[in-house]
Amino acid sequence: MQFGILVNEGPYSHQASDSAYLFARTALEKGYKVPRIFFYHDGVYNASRLATPPQDDRNVGARWSKLAADYGVDLVVCVAAAQRRGITDGVLGDNFRISGLGQLVEMGIQYDRLVTFGD
């Protein structure tokens, strides 16, 4: 079974991105497939490699990058939302890519489930 995940909020201000990460990691550990995670609205801030949280806090962006490396998850950042918020190819963390909203619609069409995390 394939899960798509939609993340609508940035890191740190809302729990949404933490909840989405724990859901995705658990699903992958249980053997489900999470082929793609889509970042929309302020969720595009998850993709910034410029964030430098204190050492005793989690690094949300790096954590996504590692999940993608470990399991081959496609981390897609919405181009329109990213351009509004200054997230460009130059600031993307590892394994993130920028693409269109069509990638979100495809998740709905092709995968068995779509789970949204937001505010």
């Binding site: 609508n8 724990l22 859901f23 658990t26 249980k30 489900y32 789970v115 949204t116 937001g118 505010d119």
Partner: peptide, 18 residues
């Protein structure tokens, strides 16, 4: 969280009331 994942798998669709 494992139970959360199972709930999503068991139901045909889900809706997040944001």
């Amino acid at each position: 969280y494992a139970g959360f994942v199972d709930l999503v798998a068991e139901h045909k669709s889900c809706q997040s009331w944001l």
